[in-house]
Computed example of a mutant assay.
Amino acid sequence: MTITGGCRCGACRYELALDAPPPVYACHCHMCQRASGSAFSVQALVPEASLTVTGPIVVHEITTGDRTSIQRFCGTCHARVYNTNTRRPGIAVVRAGTLDRSEELECRAHIFTDYRQRWVTIPEGVPQWPEMAPLAEFAAALTQG
Rank of each mutant, 00 (worst) to 15 (best):
P23S: 04
T52H: 04
I91C: 10
V94W: 01
A96Y: 03
D100E: 08
I62Y: 12
C27V: 02
M31P: 02
V126A: 03
E61L: 10
E48G: 07
H60P: 09
E131N: 10
C29I: 00
H110E: 05
D66F: 10
I3A: 06
P123W: 03
T4I: 14
C77D: 03
M132L: 15
Q117N: 08
Q144S: 15
A39R: 07
Q128I: 12
A11S: 14
E106D: 10
G10H: 06
C7P: 09
A44S: 04
A17S: 12
P134T: 12
H78N: 12
I62K: 11
P134N: 12
T68R: 08
T113H: 01
T86P: 10
A92I: 01
R108V: 14
R95H: 12
S41V: 03
L99F: 09
R118L: 15
E48F: 11
C74R: 02
W129C: 06
A140R: 05
R108G: 10
Y82P: 06
G55Y: 02
F138Y: 14
A20T: 04
F112Y: 15
I70K: 14
G145F: 00
E106P: 06
Q128R: 08
A136T: 07
I111R: 01
F73R: 07
I111A: 03
R95N: 08
T76R: 00
V42E: 01
I91L: 08
V53S: 03
R72M: 13
H78M: 12
Q128N: 08
S69C: 14
L142E: 05
S69F: 13
C32W: 02
Q43G: 07
T76W: 04
D66I: 11
Y14D: 03
G90P: 13
R88G: 11
A79N: 09
R67P: 11
T86N: 13
E104F: 06
T86Y: 06
D66W: 08
R72F: 15
G10I: 10
T54I: 10
D114M: 04
E131Q: 11
V93A: 08
S69A: 15
P47I: 02
R116H: 00
A35L: 11
A35T: 09
C9Q: 04
R118D: 15
G145L: 00
T4Q: 14
V120T: 05
A92L: 04
S102E: 03
L105H: 02
A44F: 04
L99Y: 01
P127C: 04
C9M: 05
S38F: 07
M132T: 12
E15N: 07
P56S: 13
I57V: 15
R72G: 08
S102V: 03
M1E: 08
I57R: 00
L105D: 03
A20W: 05
E104A: 13
R95W: 10
T86A: 10
T2K: 15
E124S: 14
I3D: 05
N85M: 14
H28I: 01
C7Y: 02
L99Q: 00
R108I: 14
